[in-house]
Every structure is written in C-alpha cells, then in structure tokens.
Design a protein around this nucleic acid. Structure first.
Lengths: 348, 348
DNA sequence: CCTTAGCACTCATCAAATAAGAGTGCTAAT
DNA sequence: ATTAGCACTCTTATTTGATGAGTGCTAAGG
C-alpha cells in the first residue's frame, strides 16, 4: 500500500502529465505542488513508485510518466470528480433541446455533444434490441414473397428490412397475423418474443409458414449501431503527432465492430466505468482510454455511451460529463418511450 | 493552344507527380519518358508551361508540380481512361453480393467499396427524396397528437420520424386518410405530392387538420444522408503528412453539410464529373479533388456517389471505378424499386 | 533514520554548420 | 531549334556541439 506522501506525489505526477503530456521530473513537482519536499526526496519516492509499477521512464534521464496501473490508482483512489459547472450544463441542455424526437438524431447529437465538451471522441452505442420491448410491427408485401418489415420498439427505435419467405402468404392472412401481433406482443421484451410466439402457435395450431416469417422478423445480426462524433479531436493531442500510430487508431475507430465488441464486454454495472489502455485487452487501442456509462430506458439498461481519448485523459472532467450525458439520454429516451407506450392506452 | 510536345511534357509531369507526389524535374522526364529530348529542351518547355499557368514551382530550384489548370487540362484532354480489369470487376461484384437488400446497407457498402478500390475516401449521397416516388405510408398514433410516420419510397428507402399536430385526429379518421393516401399516391413523385394533395382536398372538401398533417409528413429538411467510407485513406498520402492541414481536411469530411452542399452544386449531367482543388469553390477542401457520378433509378437521377482524394489523384483509374459503381448502384436500386413497385400489382 | 545538498553522468533536443544533390536559367556552341 | 556546360539557388540530410533537464548515488545534516 502506498503511504500518504507517495499518493500525493503520484497524484501530482499524473495531474501534471495530464496537463502537459510531457514527462514530469522531480523539480517540477517540488516547485508546482506545495509538498515542502526537496527534489531529491521526491526522486527517491518516484523511484519507489516506479519499482511498484505506477510510473515509468521513457529513457534514463527523462521525467516519469504514469503506467496503466498508475492511471488506474489515480482514477480509483486519488481523483476527485470535477462536476460540470451550471453554465456547462445549461450549454449542453441548449445544444440538446431542438428537434430531439427522432431516436437516431438523439444518438447523433449525443455523440457530438460528448466530443464537443470533452475535446476527445464521443460515441453512443444504440439501444440493444434484445433488451428493448416490442411496440408495433408493420408488414408491407412486395413481390416474390418479399416483405418489407418495419419494427418499432418501445423506445421509438424503428428497424426496417426486407425479408424473404418461401411460402407465399395471402394478403388477408398477413393482415390477420399482423393484427394478432400488434394486439398481443406490445410491451413484451424482444428476448422473450420468440418463445411467446412459438407457445401461441402451438395453442392455436397455426401453420409453419408463419413461424418462418416470425423467425425472420425477430432475428437480427448483432450489428448494433455505433455513433461516433469528433473523430478529429484525437488529432488535437500531442501524443498522436506521430502519424504511424495515429493511423492505426483511426483504423480502430473506423472498425465499428471492434469498438462494439469492447463495449459489450464492459459489464453493465451502475455508474461510470473507465477502461485504461491495455485494460481493454485490444491491441489496436492500447494507447487509448474509454470512459463509458450505461444509459437506461425506464430503469433498464439500454445502451452504452462515452468518450474515447488518449490514456492521458482529463478523467475528472470526463467522468462527470459522461455521467451527466448518460442521465440526460436516459431521461430523454424514457420520456420518448412513455409517449410511445402510453399511446396504447389513448390511441387504441 | 499547346503544341504536341508541350502536351506530352505536361502529361509526363503530371503522370510522374501523381505517382510520386514529388516535384518533377527535367532530367527525370528525359530519362523516364521516351521523348528523345535533352533535359535542357524540356526545361525550356516547362518554363513555357509555367508561364501559361499549367505548372508551378514550389521554390526556385525545385521541379514542377501541376496547378489546378494543369490537372484540368490533363483530365479533359490528355488522360486515357484505365478500365477496370475483369478481375477487379469480379472482386467488386463479390464484395457486393451479400445481403444487399436494405438500402442503407447498399449505401454503406458502396462507400466502402469505393474507398477500398481507390485507396481514397469513398462517399455516397443517399437518394434525394424530392426526386423519388412515393410508395407507401404508415402512421402509428402516439399520445398528445404525436404520430410516428413511416414513409416508404419507390426505391425502398424508409424514412421515419415523429410529427406533432395541434388538432387530434381520431383513430378511424387516421385510418381513412391513410387508406386514401396509399390508394391514390403510389408512383407519384414527391415533388408533385403536395400540390396533388391540396387539389384533392379542395375537391373532396376535407378539413384543415388533415392538410396540416400532410404538410408535415411530406416536408423535410434538406439534410440528406451521406455515407463516407475509408476516411483514413486520406492519411496514406504524403501530401497530408502535415497534421495542420490534415486536420482541417478531416474537419471538412466531418461536416457533412459542406460536402452535401458541394455535391448538390455539381450539375446532374451524364457521366463522371471531376472537380479539382479550388474548382469546388470551397476553401476547406481546396487541396482535394472530387470524382463523382450520378446514379439513377429507372433512368431518373437519384443521388451522387464518388471519391474524394488529394488533387494528385489517379484520375484515370478512379474515373472508371466511379463510373462502374454508379452503374452498379443504379442497377441494384432499379431492381429493388421494381421489386417494390410491382408489388402493387401482385400483392394488392 | 529520514531528508537534503552536491555532483557526475545520461539523454534528448536545439541550433548552427556543413555537405550533398537536385534543379533551374542562362549562354554559347552545334 | 536544340543541346551542352556551368554558375547559382534552394532544399534536405548529416554532423557537431552546446544546453539543459533529469536521474542516481553518496555523503552530510537534522
């Protein structure tokens, strides 16, 4: 365990490194932070911290820079949360207010705001369908047994695609099925829909063609939608002057699958999560950190949003920002979902 | 007018500069291109070309590089089209084959293919709604007079958004209107829909609430959807080593509005269009060139696709690629639209 | 025993100096 | 009209030396 002095010095090093991106030496700390210690003492202490794995040396005679472990300790134990000022919150809310009724607009805008206020790259992973609830289905028949299926979720997300079935169903038949679905399924979570349908079909002795249709409608590849805002912000930071590295990072950002995979691994616990460098266990983003939070619809986890930036990130600010945005999005989406769900009572 | 020799030399300079990104000198040309002229002669000639505005000097004792005017001449008069090889076409078709039934997937995939085969950045501007034809409308009522409107175009594009109206319409009323619309409007171009509706309403003496609703459904902001693929490819090219410039270019790419504006200005003439550097009349992309083509649905202009890269672009190859992809997309979308439109005859 | 001053040593970075090379533009010869 | 030759310019790469930040160690002081 680190003693009090070591903590203070570690904190000072990280704080300074975050601000400057330059290796920080003992003198700097002695001068800038009122520790009342001589550089020499600090040097000794830093040597200890290095041995313990919290700091490293880029080369023999340079200052220290934090390791992943160092950042982790800072984030867990040292860092104080820097709440957003009232003005900032107001600005965000203003950025946010207009025309926020299409869910994809909300996602897009959120990723923009996250990047704008953090100066890093913002992202939003769209609501996970499995976790959503069903609201409405439309089927528009095309030729050759093709059908355009339009699926509306409880959160107002609209998913459409063209499906093909072997057995051609008549128009009346289709209408009947549709009515049945829109009558029985609303508010059912998607992950329980298939079993529900198969149960119902058994009871009512319906044909196989319908099951085939249903199966296609309610099956989708896991490719969730990822919104990224402010990719260029990455270029702002000195550690990415070097194009060779930067390029691989842009490649990583372009590969939505990668990010999606990483994000899906972060457990959907409460609050803000931080993933530093190699902790993400993904080579391509080993020099990046993620600050993420889960947003919820009606209290149920729906998706993930957050910020991607250099390991040397202003965690204290970013954490507050991400937290705030997660709550904001949760609220907006929950409201939207109420609008939609309660329409059942009023409209029909 | 340039004489034969000047043309050959200009062609050689540009060809070489495209390949190397380095200013090209008289010796290089004398050696690499069988012009049977001494460097000195070539120098004289290049001086003339410079005076005429086709070439420049970065500094006194460097080789020549082409100006916008030089590129323009090259593209218009000198360049031979380098057709795609059979293998390339086969590869593209293979990349393209799978699951191409959702229109947004087609757009996404097309932009990817464009970037993959050009090594520049590919883009597709989604079909312009104004030019599309109506196919189907669904209205799903929510509470408080909110309505989820789902609009299907003749090309299979699905647009959905939530609209609000003052006067609450009853469920039956809504159904009636919907039936009417889906009966009368199909195959009508969107740009003629509003007048059509207002005519109809007059004849049938319907209430104002309906006009308000219709107006909202068939009005949209011009924000068309832009798909970009392979942004990073820009980083591959030596002229963008310099981060300062590169950053502004990424900003430009991020600003979809900008690109959309530029693209909408390129007239929808036949075939491939090339925009070089400042010709686009937009400061931020003054160091970039665009190669674009219009794709069509049933012979009617629907949208624009193409490639964005450095001014020093391999125009001869890229032109063929863009041309090919435009034809490909036209075909795919036209087929898709047939599937959808003919469903009227079969399904209903 | 902890802290600190002092000092030798290591690297990285910067600037100036130098060298090399590419390319031009001009002149004079062919 | 073409070309060879040459002086001149400017860029780029390389070397060199100086500077300075920072460490690690040792020994002295509280």
């Amino acid at each position: 365990m680190l003693d009090k002095r070591e903590k203070r010095i570690l904190g000072a090093v990280i704080h300074n490194y975050i601000a400057t991106a330059l290796p920080v030496g003992s003198r700097t700390i002695a001068k800038k932070y009122r520790l009342d210690l001589s550089p020499a003492t600090i040097r000794n202490c830093m040597a200890d911290l290095e041995e313990a794995g919290y700091l490293t040396h880029p080369h023999t005679s340079a200052g220290r820079i934090p390791t992943d472990k160092g950042y982790r300790f800072y984030v867990n134990r040292l860092m104080e949360r820097e709440d957003l000022s009232r003005e900032e919150k107001a600005r965000i809310e203003k950025e946010y207010s207009n025309r926020m009724n299409r869910i994809d607009q909300i996602m897009e805008e959120t990723s923009q705001v996250l990047s704008l206020f953090s100066h890093y790259t913002g992202f939003v992973l769209a609501p996970n369908l499995e976790e959503s609830i069903f609201h409405h289905l439309e089927l528009i028949p095309l030729e050759n047994g093709r059908i355009l299926s339009i699926l509306v979720t409880g959160s107002g997300l609209v998913k459409n695609r063209i499906i093909e079935i072997e057995k051609v169903l008549s128009q009346e038949r289709l209408q009947k099925i549709l009515a049945l679905i829109n009558n029985r399924l609303p508010n059912l979570p998607f992950k329980r829909i298939k079993e529900f349908i198969s149960d119902q079909l058994k009871i009512e002795g319906q044909a196989k063609g319908i099951w085939e249709l249903m199966d296609q409608i309610f099956t989708w590849d896991g490719a969730e939608e990822l919104y990224l805002g402010g990719r260029i912000n990455i270029l702002e930071h000195p550690e990415f002057r070097d194009l060779t590295r930067t390029k691989s990072i842009f490649q990583a950002l372009e590969e939505k699958r990668l990010l999606t995979a990483v994000l899906n691994k972060t457990a959907s616990s409460e609050g803000v999560r931080i993933l530093i460098g190699k902790e993400a266990r993904w080579r391509k983003i080993k020099d990046l950190s993620l600050v993420t939070s889960t947003y919820r619809i009606n209290g149920l986890p729906a998706g993930v949003l957050g910020v991607i930036g250099p390991r040397r990130m202003e965690y204290s600010k970013v954490v507050s920002l991400v937290d705030f945005m997660a709550k904001m999005v949760s609220e907006v989406l929950t409201n939207l979902s109420h609008t939609i769900i309660s329409s059942r009572r009023v409209g029909k």
